[in-house]
Structure formats: structure tokens, C-alpha cells
């Protein structure tokens, strides 16, 4: 449901008239007070909620399941026509789908209501994206999100093309210090009964100005009644392993790497692979001897060979915090700790 620009206050209508977006538009902007059908809202339209007027200036994109980046029509990038501030708006989109991990299927849900509750919980927390939720005319919880000015963590770690040893000993320690803060942030969510729900390496943003790591996107949830936080925990392990190797390693990567090749691949046994991503190698010490044994032992908790699991994020946090001082010394000794 939408109205015409006549419903806009004069100052907003004036700004809209001269806005770069509407100048290039071949039709008048429409004013949406009910966002139920987000597919009807287009570039140049206005979302009017809570007495504020947000002009749609772009759409966000996201890659997933190996598919290239796709537009997310329920997540427009907007400009507040009164203040000129740019925000991201997340409109209500419910979906239910299964994700497959190894041979298992886990029911997943996109829940705007859950994200609204998490946003409220983490208000002011330095390691979470910030935002507020307002209701549109139809009662849909519309989330107005502050944009994190910065880059995805997985892009940041590939900025310098140094050797792995140099990356590991010089760049990784401060990254893992920040990652520890991310672990604490997730522990905070879990303590309040929430899951992040979509922990991925591109869901940590590194804020340009402060260097702080910030979690984004909390609208996914999953249903694992007996292990409610297991998937979050597994994905945290995946990020830690990715950060430490500066990538994921599969048998073909070992074969193709001139520093590894068949000699290293021959040492890999079934227990070295990920517990749930069957082809990914998590026993990284076999690939990178510079990795301290105690850090590698953390990775092995997520391997097929493990006899012990982490039950909580705090356990992972404690282990990682204890081994961080070893990373600096790995540089000097070549590491066997």
C-alpha cells in the first residue's frame, strides 16, 4: 500500500524534488507506509515510518550457498530525507529453509522479530551492529540499521599478500585479540537465550575508524532444541580456523600449493577433517608447522577425530585467550608449543 508525494511534509517534499535519485527517476516516488509487500518498493520510493521519511537509494547484496552476490530486495539502503543520514532498512521477510551440514539437515528461519529483540539487547554494545525497530502502519517491525563503515573481516585479512608465516606471526595476533571480543559478544547473546543464527566470516565487519570488529545480521535462527547454540559454536570454530590459515584448505588446495603438495597430503588422515564439512582440513599444523600445538588443539575440537567438544563459547574463549601469547613467540621459535 502506498501513497503519493502529496502526503509528504513540505520540507521533505522539497528535499525529494532536488534529490539526485529522484532527478534521474522517470516516475514520481511513491510513499510506502505499509511495507508488507517489500517487492513493490523500488529505487526512488519512500518508506515512511515513525514520522520519518526514508528514500530508497540502493539495495544491499549478499552471496550465499556458493551463489554470487544477490540483491536483497527486503534490505534497501536508504537516506533519511530530514537528516541526510544513510541507513539500512530491513523489511519483514519470513522464510523457512533447511541448511545441510555434512549429512545433516537443520531447519532454519528468518525471523525479523528475533532480530528486533537482539537489536534491543545489544544497544550500545561495541561489537554488534546498532539499530532500532519501529512499526509501520501495518504493524511490521521495520529495522533501521546504522551502517558499519568498514570492510568484511574476510576481505581485510587478504589485503596484504605476505607469506602465511608472516601473516600468522605479525598480522594474526591483533586480529585474534579482536576475535576474542567477538566470542565474548556471542557469549553475551547466548547468556540471554539468543543465537546469532548466521555466524559467517563475512558477518564480522571491521570498522574503519575504530578497528573494532562488529557482528552484523541477526535475523536468522535455527531449531536445535537439545544443543541450541551448537551451530553458532561450530561456525565460530570455522572462522577461527579460516583466520588462522588465511583461507579454507581442501585436499586440492594442498596439492596445488607448492609449499605443500602430495607429501603433505599423504599425512592427512580422516580425523584431520572438519566434523561437519567433510572435505575441509582443520588439523592445520600439518599444513603450517608454525601454528602452535595448543592453538591447533583448539581447531581439533572441530575435527572428525575429536573426543571432546566445546559446550559453550566461553570454553572456546578461555582456550584461545590462553594461547594468544604463544603466537608472538611462534615468530621467534618457529613454534612447537
Amino acid at each position: 500500500m502506498y501513497g503519493t508525494q502529496e502526503v509528504l511534509p513540505p520540507d521533505i517534499a522539497e528535499r525529494l524534488k532536488f534529490h539526485r535519485v529522484t532527478r534521474s527517476l522517470r516516475r514520481p516516488s511513491r510513499v510506502f507506509t505499509d511495507t508488507s509487500d517489500f517487492t513493490a518498493i523500488d529505487y526512488g520510493d519512500i518508506i515512511a515510518v515513525d514520522g520519518r521519511y526514508f528514500l530508497v537509494i540502493a539495495y544491499t547484496r549478499e552471496g550465499r550457498f556458493g551463489v554470487d552476490e544477490q540483491i536483497k530486495p527486503w534490505v534497501p539502503r536508504v537516506e533519511n530525507l530530514a537528516t541526510g543520514e544513510t541507513k539500512i532498512i530491513k523489511l519483514v521477510f519470513h522464510e523457512t529453509f533447511d541448511i545441510t551440514l555434512g549429512s545433516f539437515t537443520i531447519p532454519c528461519y528468518r525471523s525479523p522479530e528475533k532480530e528486533a529483540r537482539v537489536l534491543e539487547l545489544v544497544r550500545g554494545h561495541p561489537h554488534f551492529m546498532q539499530g532500532e525497530t519501529v512499526l509501520d502502519e501495518a504493524g511490521n517491525p521495520v529495522r533501521i540499521i546504522d551502517i558499519v563503515n568498514g570492510s568484511r573481516l574476510d576481505k581485510v585479512i587478504h589485503r596484504n599478500s605476505t607469506t602465511h608465516q608472516d601473516y600468522f606471526t605479525r598480522q594474526l595476533p591483533p586480529i585474534l585479540e579482536q576475535f576474542l571480543e567477538c566470542l565474548q559478544a556471542i557469549s553475551f547473546l547466548h547468556a540471554h537465550g539468543f543465537r546469532h543464527g548466521d555466524i559467517r566470516r563475512d558477518h564480522i565487519f571491521v570498522e574503519r575508524e575504530t578497528g573494532l570488529f562488529k557482528w552484523i545480521d541477526f535475523d536468522y535462527d535455527f531449531y536445535l532444541p537439545e544443543k541450541p547454540f551448537a551451530l553458532d559454536l561450530f561456525e565460530l570454530g570455522n572462522i577461527l580456523i579460516y583466520l588462522s590459515a588465511r583461507g579454507n584448505y581442501y585436499p586440492r588446495d594442498i596439492m596445488n600449493d607448492p609449499d605443500m603438495g602430495p607429501e603433505v597430503l599423504e599425512t592427512i588422515v580422516p580425523g584431520d577433517f572438519s566434523l561437519l564439512s567433510k572435505n575441509r582440513i582443520v588439523n592445520l599444523k600439518k599444513l603450517f608447522p608454525v601454528i602452535p600445538t595448543r592453538l591447533n588443539n583448539i581447531f581439533l575440537h572441530f575435527s572428525q577425530g575429536t573426543e571432546v567438544f566445546y559446550e559453550t563459547v566461553d570454553e572456546l574463549y578461555d582456550d584461545l585467550k590462553a594461547v594468544l601469547p604463544l603466537l608472538g613467540s611462534a615468530q621467534k621459535t618457529g613454534s612447537q608449543k
Binding site: L101, F104, I106, L224, A230, F234, L276
Partner: peptide, 14 residues
């Protein structure tokens, strides 16, 4: 299995 226990839990083990 180990993976099943990690993800879905085992009531008896717990």
C-alpha cells in the same frame, strides 16, 4: 555419531 552428538546432542551423555 560424533557429529550428530555435537549438533543435535545426546540426552544420555548430557
Amino acid at each position: 555419531s560424533k557429529a550428530e552428538e555435537f549438533l543435535f546432542g545426546s540426552i544420555s551423555n548430557a
